[in-house]
Structures are given as structure tokens and as C-alpha cells.
Amino acid sequence: MSTVYFIAQQTMYFAIPLLVVALGGMFAERSGVVNIALEGIMIVGAFFGIGFINIYQNTMTGQGLLILAVLVAALSGALFSLFHAFASINLKADQTISGTALNMFAPAFAIYTARMLQGVQQIQFMDTFYIRSVPILGDIPILGPILFKNAYITTYIGLFIALISWFVINHTRFGLRLRACGEHPQAADSVGINVYRIRYAGVIISGILAGIGGLTFVVPTSTNFNATVAGYGFLALAVLIFGQWRTNKVFAAAFFFGIMKTFASAYSGIPFLKGLPISNEVYKMIPYIATLIVLTFSSKNSQAPRAEGIPYDKGSR
């Protein structure tokens, strides 16, 4: 049973950042803007979030600091995403171009700034955020060890974001408008919705979530930030497509990938897998191969937003 708990706890570390960032991508794409800059935005969010922790960790510790850092990451992600919004909405640029530019800029900026300010590119931080067991909740049988032990507060923030996202996109007026702009912006415009404003909102939300996701990825898995989020932005993009742009499916896809990734990275802690004569690298490949296979059998009907990637031009029909 302890193995199951171990797997569940590990899965959270991988799945939550993927989930948050993929949901961010969902907001952008369902408003009609493809955001392949998720990777870059994650790096910017993590950079400013971890930088904030690095500066203030001598004056404060614990959950308060982490929550402030999450806010910093969200804000920096939002600001950075404005570049993408401006190029792809106002300038009607090809969205791959500005996304690629942002992806390239972010790690270079993080390395340059860190090295110019402190000599090395790694930004160290002390992990004072680890929660061994949440009071009361951690003692619940079964559910307690799975959800409320060996955790980080970012896990709950992530799950909360998923719930909010589901509600916003499916059950609010804003969500309906967002979806309309991604499916048929001309129709949305004809009933008085400001397509540009909605798309800006979509991209900014994706920036906020990707920024948070970047920090959420770094905090549980490392004690320094090395100007990379290990391709998680691209994986989140994959999770988004895998999840067919729907909140509940994205949730499932993120956890599918998270569990696979857990088997890959922590198999030596799982007695059953440790005994098998399989190379380390094979385990690492499994999440990607499994995703490929699942996609092969589930991609016949793509649910992509129809107007995704097409700049909205008021004059066109």
C-alpha cells in the first residue's frame, strides 16, 4: 500500500505543472490563439518566482513566501505573454513565429540576467515549503496519504485552478464568449463581442497559468533554477492536444502522463519494477511511447477550436 501512496505523491509533482500549463494553453487556444510560447513563459515565471524566493528567503519562509512567489510568477508570466498577444492579435502575425521568439528569448534572458547579477546561471533556493502531512486531513485513511502527505501547497493551487478553469470555461458568460471567439470570431463579433479583448484575455490567462506552472514545476523537483523547465511547456502542449482542448480530458491526460513519468523516474522505488531486467532509458521512453500509441487510436476526430491560429481580421468574412 505504501507503494501506491508513493506513486500518487510522486505523480502530483509531475502532473500538476503539466495540468496547470496545459489549462493555460487551453484558454489561449480556445480563444483562437495558438500559444507555443508556453515553454518560454514557464521559464520566465519560474525565473521571477524563484528569484523572488532567493531574495526574500532570509526574511521570510514557508507557505507565505511560496504563495507570494506564485503571485510573482503569475504576474511575470502575464506580462511576458503580452508580447505574444500583441503580435498575434494586433499585428496578425503568424503565431508560430512570435511563440518561437518568446521560447528562444526566455532561457537566454534567464541565463543572461542570472549570470550578470550573480555570476552563475543557477539560482539557489531553500526548500522551506515541503509539507510532511497536512494537519487533520493527512490522517484520513487512504485519501490522506494520497493527497495530503509529502505535498506542496502548489499541488492544491493547481487542483483549485483546474476546478476554476472548468467552471469558467463551461459555465460562465466569459467562457462562452471565449469559446465563440475560438470557433467563429466573425459570428462572435456580429453579436457585439470584442474579439480582440477576449483573445487578449485568453492569452493573458495562459501567461498567468504558464508562469505559475513554471514555478510549480521547479519547487518540488529541485533546489535551484537552471534556466530550464525541461521541455514541460512542450509536453503541456502535447497534453493539451491529447486532452482535446477540454478541461476534464486535459486533467486526465496530465495525470496519465504524470503517472507514466513517475514510473519512469521513480521505478527504482517501486519493488515490482525494480526487479525487471529493463534498462533505465526504456522506462524513460515509456511515457512518450504510451502517449503516441494512445493518440494513434484516439485522434480520428480532432476537437481543435476551428479558428485556432487564424488572426482575426474585422474586414474578412
Binding site: G231, L235, A238, L292, L295
Partner: peptide, 11 residues
């Protein structure tokens, strides 16, 4: 199979 090229390429 109509699988998105971006996602398969990443994988």
C-alpha cells in the same frame, strides 16, 4: 491516423 504532427514530433 490524423495525429497532430507537433505532438508526435515532440514525443
Amino acid at each position: 491516423f490524423n495525429v497532430n504532427v507537433v505532438i508526435t514530433s515532440i514525443m
